[in-house]
C-alpha cells in the first residue's frame, strides 16, 4: 500500500468513527447549552442502539429501527429532565444513573428476548442502512487523487453519515437563527432573564432535552443498524464520554464540535491502523497514546492551557425561581 492509499483508508475510517461522536456531541450541545449537564450521553447512545437494533430486526425496516432508537433516547432524556428539572436533582448523579440503567437493561432485555448473550440477531437487507454509492463513484475511481477520495471517502457511506454532516449546519441554524435557539442559549446562561421575559424555563429545557434525545437516537441507530448489523454488548464503549470531551474541546459550538469529533475520530482511526505497525525513525507507537489523546487534550484545554473553555454559565444548577 502506498501512502496515498493509507491516507484514503484512514480518512474513510475517520469519517465512520466520527459519525456517532458528531451525533452524540450535538445531542450534548443542545442540553448543555440549555444549562443541563449531560453525563448520560453514553447511556442514551447505548439504549438507542439497542432499541434501534430490536425494532429494525422485528420490523425489517431500518427506518423503524431509527424511530425506535430516537424514541428510547427521548425517554431517557425525559427521565433526566424529570430528575434534574422537575425535581431539581443533581444532574451529574442523574446522568450517571441513566448510564448504568442503559448498560444493564440493554443486556438484560437482549438476553431475555434473543438469548444470544445480550446481542441482538444480525440484520440484513433493509433492516440496516447500507452504503449509498454516489453517482459516478465507479467511474471516478480511476481518476488520480480525486477519484479514490470521492469513491472511498465521500461516496459509499450510509444515509446517516450524510445526515450527521447535515445535522451540524442544521444545529447551528437552530441555535443561532431560530427563536427556539435564542431562548435555549439564553436559558443556559441566565435562566432568570428568560423567566422575567415571560418564558417558561422548565418547558424550554425539556424541549432542549427532546432535541438531545433525537440526536442521541441517531447516534445509537448509527452504531447498531448502520455501522454494525446488530446490537453488541456495551457497543458504545465510552464513545459518549469521548463525545462529551469533544463538546468541551469545541467550547460548546456546533462547527467546532464537528471538527473536534473528526479529530477524535481520526485519532481512533490512526490507533486502529497503527496496531502493530512501526513508524520509520520513531518505532512502534503504542496505540494507547492515540486512545488517551482525546482525554488528555480535553484536560489540557480544561486547565486553560490552550484557550479557555467557558461552559454555559447556568450549567448544572437547578433553576429556583426567586426574587
Amino acid at each position: 500500500m502506498d501512502y496515498f492509499d493509507i491516507f484514503v483508508s484512514i480518512l474513510g475510517s475517520t469519517i465512520r468513527l466520527s459519525i456517532p461522536l458528531i451525533f452524540t456531541a450535538l445531542a450534548g450541545l443542545f442540553s448543555e447549552r440549555a444549562g443541563i449537564v449531560d453525563i448520560g450521553l453514553e447511556g442514551k447512545m447505548l439504549a438507542a442502539a439497542f432499541a434501534a437494533a430490536c425494532l429494525a430486526y422485528v420490523s425489517g425496516s431500518a427506518w423503524i429501527g431509527l424511530l425506535g432508537g430516537i424514541g428510547i433516547s427521548i425517554g431517557f432524556s425525559m427521565i433526566h429532565g424529570f430528575a434534574s428539572i422537575t425535581n431539581r436533582g443533581n444532574q451529574i448523579v442523574s446522568g450517571v444513573a441513566l448510564n448504568f440503567i442503559a448498560a444493564g437493561l440493554t443486556i438484560v432485555l437482549g438476553q431475555a428476548w434473543f438469548s444470544q448473550g445480550g446481542r441482538t440477531p444480525g440484520l440484513t437487507g433493509d433492516a440496516r442502512f447500507s452504503p449509498i454509492i454516489l453517482p459516478g463513484a465507479d467511474f471516478m475511481r480511476d481518476v488520480p487523487i480525486v477519484g479514490p477520495l470521492y469513491a472511498n471517502v465521500i461516496s459509499g457511506n450510509n444515509i446517516l453519515t450524510y445526515l450527521a454532516f447535515a445535522a451540524v449546519p442544521l444545529s447551528w441554524w437552530i441555535l443561532y437563527r431560530t427563536r427556539f435557539g435564542l431562548r435555549l442559549r439564553a436559558v443556559g446562561e441566565n435562566p432568570a432573564a428568560v423567566d422575567t421575559a415571560g418564558i417558561s424555563v422548565s418547558w424550554l429545557r425539556f424541549r432542549a432535552l427532546i432535541v438531545t434525545g433525537i440526536l442521541g437516537g441517531f447516534a445509537g441507530a448509527y452504531l447498531a443498524i448502520a455501522q454494525s448489523a446488530a446490537f453488541i454488548n456495551n457497543m458504545s464503549a465510552g464513545k459518549g464520554y469521548i463525545a462529551l470531551a469533544a463538546l468541551i474541546f469545541a467550547k460548546w459550538k456546533p462547527v467546532p464540535v464537528m471538527l473536534a469529533c473528526l479529530l477524535f475520530g481520526f485519532l481512533d482511526a490512526v490507533a486502529n491502523f497503527m496496531q502493530g505497525k512501526s513508524i520509520p525513525m520513531i518505532g512502534e507507537v503504542p496505540v494507547q497514546i492515540f486512545q488517551a489523546l482525546p482525554y488528555v487534550l480535553t484536560c489540557i484545554l480544561l486547565a486553560g492551557f490552550i484557550g479557555i473553555a467557558h461552559p454555559p454559565k447556568a450549567g448544572g444548577v437547578p433553576y429556583v425561581k426567586e426574587r
Binding site: 427563536r179 435564542l182 439564553a186 446562561e189 432573564a193
Partner: peptide, 25 residues
C-alpha cells in the same frame, strides 16, 4: 436580567422575537 454573552439586540428580542425564525424579527 440580561444574558451577558448575548448582543444588545438579542437581549432586547428575547421573549419578543416576532416569529419562529429570528431572521424575520
Amino acid at each position: 436580567m440580561l444574558v451577558e454573552n448575548f448582543t444588545v439586540l438579542e437581549n432586547v428580542m428575547l421573549g419578543a422575537e416576532g416569529g419562529q425564525l429570528l431572521a424575520k424579527g
